[in-house]
Design a protein around this nucleic acid. Structure first.
Lengths: 129, 129
DNA sequence: TTACGTGCAAACGTTTTGCACAAAC
DNA sequence: GTTTGTGCAAAACGTTTGCACGTAA
């Protein structure tokens, strides 16, 4: 894996952010910064970084693939009103299913909590969704 | 919402299956049955059914959108080896985050367990993934 | 110097849209 | 008769690929 200009730029981007971005959103950031990154190069390197475990992948609300610099095991918490997504730590207890699935060997879990963020609780005290 | 021929055919399909299908997989089933369904009509009605709560949406292994006739609250269990996906019931304990996120109002959760299914445990006793 | 990465353009598969026609109410 | 849905063709969208050129090692 070679040290190239586009890879350094991408790593620099991830080192300064903690969000969950689609490829298009990342490209937009570079475009706005006046230093656009070719879309093929972007996709190629997101794949490479992900394969090498340098960044994580998250499935977004609409099913779109998002990349994430937070590599620690964590769950996600999404606001049902404004859609904001944050990382949370959950201490997960025994996740072995009872009944159907009890003979599976569980190796991991992906948990996405849904809820109303504090700002939306304040803005819309009466549930609208 | 009108009762039309394509909608009845689609509902009939979902009433007889309990899998998680992509639009293309559903179209393929109709094609094989000798009664193809136009792709635009299929997409339009999957959206309509989902909006009306008649079917559920699941994000598949590769991030693709899948539709699901099982409307009861359930989690998914996916095999890391063969990719098979099954529905499971989990009795989820307290999911309120501690620390960051503790001031959110939790309304639901989407849980996907990963593991090795019994058939794969038998076929590959030594972990390959 | 040679293997690897870049980045353009083109291809690709999936999903959506425009619209004239048909069917349901 | 009016509104809604159908289904074709075309467009749009996000992503991948082929390939000649550039660059890191």
């Amino acid at each position: 894996m070679r040290t190239t200009q586009p890879r350094l730029r991408l790593l620099h981007f991830f080192s300064r952010t903690d969000g969950h971005f689609t490829p298009e959103e990342i490209a937009e950031r570079f475009r706005l910064a006046g230093e656009p990154i070719p879309i093929a190069t972007l996709y190629q390197n997101l794949r490479v970084f992900s394969d090498h475990g340098l960044i994580g992948e998250v499935i977004g609300h609409g099913g779109e693939l998002r990349y994430d610099a937070n590599l620690t095991p964590h769950s996600h918490l999404r606001c049902n009103r404004c859609g904001v997504l944050m990382d949370v730590m959950l201490s997960l207890p025994d996740l072995q299913p009872l009944g159907p699935g009890q003979d599976w060997q569980i190796t991991g879990a992906r948990v996405e909590l849904q809820g109303i963020c504090p700002a939306c609780q304040e803005a819309f005290p009466i549930p609208v969704l």
